[in-house]
Simulated assay, not measured.
Amino acid sequence: MSGLSQMPANGSSLHDPARKRPLFWETAFSGSDPDALSEIWSTPNSPIKAAAQADAPIAYRCNFVSTEELAIADCAYDGTISIRREAPNGKLIIFLPLEGNAVFDAGKEQFHSVPGCGTILGAGRASGARLFGRRRHLGLFVDQARINRQLGHMFERTIGGDTDFHPTIDLTTGSGLVLEQLAVNLYRGLSGDGPLQQSPLALNALCDAMIYLLLETCPHRYSEALAAPASAPAPRHVKWAIDFMREHMAEPISLSDIATAAKVSVRTLQQGFRQFRNTTPIAYLHELRMLAAHRDLRESGTRQAVADIALRWGFTHLGRFSAEYRKRFGQLPSQALKR
């Protein structure tokens, strides 16, 4: 794969200040200080420590282009650098090498990364890396929540947890080659004055295409289920129940209310959700409310309090809501509110 265009000036911003929710932004960094590199890569929930081997000189330049649920970085390094991640970051990370050698740690396993061989690290697996000599790669960072949402659409049920992708991917042929080409096009389309800045629909379609390509062609926890014949369509009473939940999820509805709206008994309703949604009606309603709270937290900025949003969607115990929200989305509600 040929090299990418030169990086823009340090700290350039792509977002329109008039927008309530910026679609994307771009930031470039360069330097030779390992502590500054640590700060660049760290997030509040997932600190990272970078160090140079034997205090030998290093150099780096990194350009990040980010959307709300996906980021892509073009990074180049010189010198031997070790990187240790001190906490999971809630993102699937894909490294697409363009030059040089690296080793990535995932728990007790190690994976060599050279041009032609990509590395896929799950949200909870990336623990560190070592970069040797001259190294350049593209890094894709995808929110696990977005991947789970697209899996949910494919299965028509709620999906949670890590996807457990196979950690290596051949970039010289097949889906790996296409993935690398899509990533390069995404980077070029967003950086500088790229055309994707003016087309959020095309941007979203390209991001979806990359995720579906991964889900349909790369081995992971749900591959066998995706390859199996599709299950029968959900019966009408399950669909009626879901419609009723969506229309009244801000109200204190009960299981009996849902069954009445679906025109079946509570037992039949529960059986239908177990068979066709792999969950219970109340758990499904709870997930709808959690997703609604997540949307409001991301959209409201600092205009509303976390407690107000939680109460709006029926979460009366703020501590329990915060703990569950962090487990589900990888950050506290207050952190999503300030985003």
Rank of each mutant, 00 (worst) to 15 (best):
L226Y: 00
M290E: 11
A106K: 08
F64S: 01
G189Q: 02
P252S: 01
A336I: 00
T268F: 02
V114N: 13
L190C: 05
D162C: 06
L226E: 07
Q304S: 08
P115A: 04
G124W: 12
E156R: 15
D296E: 15
L182C: 07
G301Y: 00
A293P: 00
S30C: 08
Y325L: 03
A336E: 08
K263M: 10
S66A: 14
A323F: 08
I93W: 01
S265K: 02
H286K: 01
T302N: 15
D16E: 13
E324C: 07
A123K: 13
A71I: 01
I169F: 04
A73M: 13
Q271A: 13
A209Y: 05
Q110P: 00
I169H: 05
N148V: 01
Y60C: 03
T158H: 09
S322D: 13
L213M: 14
L288Q: 14
A202K: 13
G107Q: 02
Q270C: 15
S265Q: 08
F132Y: 14
E251A: 15
L138H: 00
N63P: 06
L337Q: 06
G194N: 07
F132N: 12
R19M: 14
E324S: 13
R221G: 10
Q331P: 05
G176C: 07
V114T: 12
L226P: 00
A76Y: 14
K108Q: 02
Q150R: 14
F104V: 08
L297F: 05
A323R: 14
I258W: 00
P167E: 10
G116P: 07
L215F: 01
Q150T: 05
E299Q: 12
M249Y: 12
S231D: 04
L215S: 09
L177R: 10
L332I: 02
M1F: 11
L37R: 04
F273E: 09
K327R: 15
L255F: 06
R236L: 15
R295S: 14
S334H: 09
T260V: 12
L92D: 14
Q110H: 12
L285C: 08
A54S: 13
D193L: 05
M249A: 14
R134T: 03
L92Q: 01
F321G: 00
Q197G: 15
S38K: 10
M1L: 11
T260M: 11
D243T: 14
M7E: 03
R289M: 09
Y222N: 10
R312C: 07
H294L: 05
I169Q: 05
M154P: 07
R61K: 11
E26H: 04
F321C: 04
